[in-house]
Design a protein around this nucleic acid. Structure first.
Lengths: 152, 152
DNA sequence: TATTGTTATACTCTATAACTATA
DNA sequence: TATAGTTATAGAGTATAACAATA
């Protein structure tokens, strides 16, 4: 077919998950282009941001906040450490744990990248009516909670 | 530290992209659990849905609607065909092209899976005020468009 | 026993390049 | 020359299992 009628995704459009998938994929691909000049990816930028905001953070805490597994965080911290953007130092109180701190270089790169990401994010949400923007964020957080508490 | 104060992701929370990532990941993980009993994944379910809704669809059209590359669609159609859920027949008008049709088995499985996905989606969006639900979908589509048209 | 960091492994989704056969 | 389907390959994010060191 394709000759007779127009193609439709009306059935899938009934699902908010489908709209979320499309929106997130497009946003994520575009965000990657924004972060590439800084040598960062979505997850390395996010991790860097959290260490800037929470100096001394432990990797396990970072993984929890990012809602990813500890195992997946290791390579992210490895990469940031190897690039000299943050340091991994032994904890003074718990010899199992590490403390994460940004370096001056990491702070500087983050400041620039954060500006670019803020501008990018503003462009992404610009088409949404201003009074709906906080409601959009609330709705997304509500959906996250619904998904996590869904047992069925 | 982590000993003194609570951990915060306030900076990242300023970005709608961060909320979208968290919400979508949680929803997607939960949707996977919903689809596993049917032997389907998000993309195989989506492809099946579109072939049900658009019989005779060509793979290239399917890839366009799903906003993925043709190359990535091949394995999805392979899987659905090998499981006997859809057929790939040569087009009568264009010997390069194929026409996709669901089998009876595919139709039957889709009906059940679609019901489960509909229920899942309803649970996901249940916490969002009803009058905000269409506005949420509009906002997500707007963000998708903004991301695709973003050139900077 | 439980937790922290770690390694290894695999799965899903995605993107790009290049090929073939047709148009 | 352009398009449809395909193959191959790689990158990014995620999940699980298992381990050593430490609590």
């Amino acid at each position: 077919m394709g000759t007779t009628g127009a193609i439709t995704d009306a059935s899938l459009r009934a699902f908010v998950g489908y709209d979320m998938k499309r929106a997130f994929n497009a946003l994520q691909a575009d965000l990657s282009r924004t972060l590439t000049p800084f040598g960062l990816r979505m997850m390395t930028f996010s991790a860097l941001s959290l260490v800037v905001e929470n100096p001394g953070l432990r990797p396990s805490q970072l993984a929890t906040v990012l809602t990813i597994e500890r195992a997946n965080l290791v390579v992210i911290v490895d990469e940031l450490e190897q690039r000299g953007l943050l340091t991994r130092t032994p904890s003074t109180t718990d010899r199992r744990a590490h403390a994460l701190h940004v370096t001056d270089q990491g702070q500087s790169l983050f400041a620039k990248a954060n500006r670019a990401v803020a501008e990018h994010d503003a462009r992404m949400i610009a088409g949404v009516a201003q009074h709906l923007q906080p409601q959009l964020k609330d709705a997304l957080r509500q959906i996250e909670n619904s998904a996590k508490q869904d047992v069925v």
